Simulated scan of single mutants.
Amino acid sequence: MGFLFINVPEGTGITVAGVGSYEGPVALELSPGRYTVEIRKGVEIVAEVFVTQNNVTVLHIDPGIIKTAVSGDGVVSVKAVLNESANYSREKLNPPFNPFFFPGGCGGGFPYINISKPYPMSLLVRGREEIYLILNGTFMHLGDDEGKACVSYVVVYPGRGEHLETVENATYLVPWARLEVSSKPEGLTVYINGGYSRYILYTPIGLYVPAIPHDVYNATARGFHRVIQIPVIHRLENHRVGVADGNYLVESIVKVSPSGNYSVNVDMDKVKLALRVERTSVEEFPIAMKHLVKKAPAEKSIELNGDCTVSLESMTEDVPIAALVRLSHKIEFVL
């Protein structure tokens, strides 16, 4: 068996998937393996950690600090993830070309990105300051060429590519919002709606994102030798922005409006301070318990399996047994 200590502010609700729900701080004796710990207290926190044989895994979580680590305009919710078996970062390739190079005209570069939810999307790059998150099945104004608007019918094939067709007389153009993503330290991996581009999406980065406040029906435009009709363009006001460093991922939901300016800033140093794992040996277990787990009041006793009652007064203060929840025993506090 191994031990998992979840060190949180007093009274914080904790769920350990497949094990149970508790009020923290709490200590558990568990079989070796991977466990998912979830907390919702102002922010959503998910930690996937390993418990090993005869060792103590201590998981420190401070939701208050994590909440202050994320700031910005338009942020409506935050989720912080620590996954010991994942690597959310990606290596910067430093390609032998400028991924932001744009020779002019309409169109641009299409760095690989695979976004399928909530709708298929891709990226169009027209220089460092003109990065567009393009949306499948829409008419979009994608910059200008010598004063003339570049308006295209956009088709996105998730993970395979995209197609732009120049159109005129569009009855509806998708509105844009500006989104800036930054972090401390800089150079962290950025995900937009779950998609990742290994060439350009590292903090700090700015891009234009769709800001569609309501469903639009039967939009039309004239393309090459045909009239294009789109039955429905769905409302799209929320974008999921992820900032990652190693096995840490912080996701923010940003709600946008047409022509608005929005931002997300993540202090990853704070996140790592408030969400971290350390391990110690079983021999050091009583010391760890004394500092990390709430003790039962001295006037109470513990009944194990209904067979015996042990007075807490007879225990040494350095061994707060009441805080240890053994999954193989039923523990009752008797007044």
Rank of each mutant, 00 (worst) to 15 (best):
V232E: 12
P96S: 09
H291T: 08
S77C: 04
I134D: 05
F97I: 07
V256Y: 10
E283I: 08
H141F: 00
I331M: 11
L30N: 07
G72M: 06
T52A: 08
E278W: 02
V151Q: 02
M1G: 09
G13Y: 02
H163F: 12
V241W: 05
G242H: 14
P204I: 03
E332L: 02
D245I: 08
L124F: 02
P96F: 12
R178V: 00
P9M: 08
V46C: 04
M289T: 04
D145R: 02
R226N: 09
I192C: 07
I45K: 01
D215V: 09
S122Y: 04
L188G: 08
P95Y: 14
I131R: 01
I45S: 02
A244M: 14
P175M: 13
V81S: 03
D245R: 03
A177V: 07
K255H: 15
T36H: 03
T280S: 01
K272M: 11
G24A: 07
V174S: 06
E284L: 08
Y35F: 15
K41C: 05
P158G: 13
V310A: 05
G33Y: 12
E38D: 09
R235Y: 15
V256P: 15
N114D: 14
Y262F: 15
K272S: 00
S77T: 05
Y132H: 00
G109M: 09
V293Q: 08
A323K: 02
N83C: 10
I39L: 12
V125C: 01
G13N: 14
S21L: 00
E146Q: 13
K117W: 04
V310D: 00
S311M: 09
M289K: 05
N261A: 02
F5H: 06
V254C: 14
N261Q: 06
K117R: 14
